[in-house]
Design a protein around this nucleic acid. Sequence first.
DNA 1: GCGCGTTGAGAAAAGGTTTTCTCACTCGCA
DNA 2: TGCGAGTGAGAAAACCTTTTCTCAACGCGC
Lengths: 312, 312
Amino acid sequence: MSVSTVSKALNDNGRMAADTRERIKHLAAEIGFRPNALARGLLSNRSFTVGLLTNDTYGRFTLPVMAGVSEALVDHGVSVFLCAIEDDPALGKIHVDAMLDKQVDGIIATGKRVDRSLPVDLAGLPVPVVYAFTKGEPGSVTLTSDDGHGARLAVERLKKMGRKRLLHITGPLEFTSAVERAEAFRAVAGGGAPVLHGVWSEAWGHEAIDRIWIAGGERPDGIFCGNDQIARGVVDALRERGVRVPEDVSVIGFDNWEIMAAQTRPPLTTVDMNLKELGREAGLMVLALAEGRPIEPGLRKLPCRLVIRDSC
Amino acid sequence: MSVSTVSKALNDNGRMAADTRERIKHLAAEIGFRPNALARGLLSNRSFTVGLLTNDTYGRFTLPVMAGVSEALVDHGVSVFLCAIEDDPALGKIHVDAMLDKQVDGIIATGKRVDRSLPVDLAGLPVPVVYAFTKGEPGSVTLTSDDGHGARLAVERLKKMGRKRLLHITGPLEFTSAVERAEAFRAVAGGGAPVLHGVWSEAWGHEAIDRIWIAGGERPDGIFCGNDQIARGVVDALRERGVRVPEDVSVIGFDNWEIMAAQTRPPLTTVDMNLKELGREAGLMVLALAEGRPIEPGLRKLPCRLVIRDSC
DNA sequence: GCGCGTTGAGAAAAGGTTTTCTCACTCGCA
DNA sequence: TGCGAGTGAGAAAACCTTTTCTCAACGCGC
């Protein structure tokens, strides 16, 4: 029984008697034969491996993205190298070099904010690169969540609940996502609707509410928050002031960060960016590129989804 | 210039004229030559790759462990496959098979609780396995945090702050970590010190405080919580009742889950399980095993660390 | 001057798989 | 019976490195 015959049998390749093929397959299964992926990759120039590069070590963004990538690729026999590079260019280079040495079929770059690049240059690499939830090179394949869409979903929901005096409390102006969400908020809520920019923290949500209630002007009855942490601060501050959520004021957050949104009292209605889906798409795209199938370059924005809980 | 000469030059192997070696190295650097790790692995039977298996997709435990593993191994040129298998045995088998096909040098299993195994059998694999923060087979190499030690650190701190009436609010009795922490709590605080078991949530922390304050018996002045979520619920409930933290009551949490502990008002003093360090150790151990260096099997418990913030 | 020892470089094999090519055998048809 | 077509199986090359072995040349000492 020659090596080549076995190989052909197992891969349904070449001409051979059906029973020989069956016999070989049966025997192979019996002794638990597993082809060596290294040898296979050496020949085919495919390692069935992709690298996932992130600077969001502890973040809640990368994790769902990773899960999606892994889920999409496992069906194609592709495994994922995870490389957390913090914000260290040297570490980034080391990891990219290691991935190239290991002949990854492609690289997916992801991060913690969509308007910053990773601290490592991925242009001109000999393998395809897809950017997911991080800033890509011009002319690259990039996937992002559609922040404007998410914000519109939220504001439309507030209006549908009959809320008239809408307010947006969000993060710093340096963040593109804050700006895009705020623009969509104004577009739907009306140009005069107030927007408060601060930091992405619970404390800021608290402070914003304190400020408004102390100022004593017109008080909002519908608040759209830039993320779930701010929303939590808002909800807590309202409760402490005796304002009922959602009876007196409806609140909607952003991120659907489960552990935060579900533990808030009441649980938060919030916008989910579908990051897992984003990861899945990114995985399929890098796979397509690796297999030589063309992917139109450019920025793709994936729609968001409103998760209804009790705060609105 | 033959292939073998180049190989020897680049690996500082074999006999050759020093200037030839230098010239080759220089040239190689110039054209950016990088040896193919697949071919190298085929020959050496080392892929410089390890698999990290986890069922804690979204968890805060796996992430620091991963970071530690990756950090320890990158120095040795080893990359990490991350495989999130949820609790699906079929998915687990697929990922393990994929890792074996890719000739990983070893596997690290990790998870979300130390007293449950992954839904996949890793015994009898042809590669070394290290268990980190998950239950290992008998006779395996297993690393865990020392819950008892962490609890002692916390209680000793409470006592040092002059607290006399200590209380422990923690998770369900089915969790070994809850039991071990409770035992250590009783050992240091005194056998009669009360322990309340509930679930691992903010709501439970809240409820426990409500219950005690309503009951109207002796009230605690030092509370050690089983995790940071419970601690947060406790701190919030105390504040809502007008009890000052840390002036009237000191509170200590467990996990040092940054985003939760730091955002609590006041920020939580809490026990850190040093999971990153645990991951680093696991990485070095699996590497040692892969290289044939022996590692004494058995359960190793790594010490915890108290992170002082404002709540105590 | 010759031989031996040393030094430097290249040839060859090995690692496991896939693919193409070749060859032998069989069967059918003339 | 002989020839051609078709079928099945194996041989060989290729992928890229590393390592061991071989061989040639040179220098030094006797």
